[in-house]
């Protein structure tokens, strides 16, 4: 088995209900389980469709079954489908060595929509994340996904981006196999395109740091 950068490796995938981050954490989890790792995914999704924040803790180990909750300040990587959710996660789980992949498209909470609260500027968010992490990538995954045909593909683009960072032993073949085992054949093509787009944005260094 390939050795992990850290054992256990703690990955957080965060976003807002309806962005599909549960699917993306399951895909990544399945890919790593297929490689023989012990994987635990902890998630809260009772109210996820109702605009709440959703956070999945994906934990990978070659040794033991881990708990579904990452202890505070122990995340190795944060993959975020929504900018302020990144901040929320870093505040509790970040540490000086953490990496961040962040979709720059905001989804405004009700308090912001109703004008009671304000949403930090993209610049402020980027600067803060950069200061709070060891390495970071930013891109508008929602725009890329919309171009493919549906904003929901942002979650798979993020998975592709994560693979491209080489933080975890993820590769396209396992992704394709996992896709085929979980999705009907007509859904495989677009998901692969999304994955490749995610890989591409990291490898061509088009994501801002």
């Amino acid at each position: 088995m390939i050795a992990l950068n850290h054992d256990p490796y703690n990955l957080i995938i965060t976003g807002v209900g309806g962005q599909g981050n549960v699917i993306s954490s399951r895909m990544i989890g399945n890919m790593l389980a297929a490689k023989g790792f012990q994987v635990t995914i902890g998630e809260t999704f009772g109210a996820s469709q109702r605009g709440g924040a959703v956070m999945s803790h994906v934990r990978i180990s070659s040794k033991a079954t881990l708990s579904p909750q990452i202890p505070v300040h122990q995340a190795h990587m944060v993959v975020s489908l929504e900018p302020i959710e990144t901040l929320r996660v870093l505040e509790s789980y970040g540490n000086p060595d953490v990496g961040v992949i962040c979709n720059t498209r905001p989804t405004h909470p009700i308090g912001v929509i109703s004008g009671r609260l304000s949403y930090p500027s993209t610049k402020e968010i980027k600067e803060t994340i950069t200061r709070l992490s060891a390495r970071s990538w930013f891109f508008d995954a929602t725009a890329m996904a919309t171009e493919i045909g549906n904003p929901i593909f942002a979650n798979i683009i993020m998975a592709g981006a994560l693979a491209a960072t080489k933080e975890l032993p993820l590769d396209r073949n396992v992704f394709e196999e996992t896709l085929k085992s979980k999705f009907p054949p007509n859904k495989v093509g677009l998901n692969l395109t999304a994955y490749d787009q995610g890989v591409g944005i990291i490898n061509t260094d088009n994501a801002s740091h």
Binding site: G18, R50, G51, L87, E91, P96, P109, G111, P120, L132
Partner: peptide, 26 residues
């Protein structure tokens, strides 16, 4: 006490106020 929890976020890095995400009807 755990040194990481003590020193993170690093001193001088003020986080902007993060608006809470209230659950609501879809």
């Amino acid at each position: 006490p755990d040194p990481v929890s003590q020193d993170y976020p690093p001193r001088g890095t003020a986080l902007p106020p993060i608006p809470p995400r209230e659950i609501s009807f879809c």
